[in-house]
């Protein structure tokens, strides 16, 4: 009913409807849902919505959540300046 109005990924504003439709159309995994819809791919690195996406996708595919982490984590796990990555301290958290 309100799937369109239910935002799942806050960073990218991806709705429950978009996720549902994607799983119906492609019968895909959380990982594929992420790549197709950008849900979980935003600024927070999926920290807020990853569990929700896993739950929805497992439910729609009638599967249980496995021991492997579907939505993989990749460094940098926090947005960071190139300068800080090189060991030079910059106060910026982003770009």
């Amino acid at each position: 009913m309100s799937d369109e109005k239910t935002i799942i990924c806050r960073c990218e504003e991806v709705s429950l409807k978009t996720i549902n439709d994607t799983v119906y159309q492609y019968s895909c995994s959380s990982r594929e849902v992420k790549l197709r819809t950008r849900a979980g791919m935003g600024y927070c690195g999926g920290r807020t919505c990853r569990h929700v996406i896993d739950t929805i996708v497992a439910d729609l595919n009638q599967k249980v959540i496995t021991d492997d982490i579907q939505l993989s984590y990749r460094p940098p796990v926090r947005p960071i300046t190139f300068g800080a990555l090189g060991g030079v301290y910059h106060e910026n958290e982003s770009c």
Partner: peptide, 21 residues
């Protein structure tokens, strides 16, 4: 201090943070 990345070598761990290594 925010951790950005972690790597391991023979001698130990290197933790990359918002405040350096």
């Amino acid at each position: 201090v925010s951790v950005v990345d972690i790597s391991q070598s023979v001698s130990g761990w290197t933790v990359y943070t918002s405040q350096g290594m």
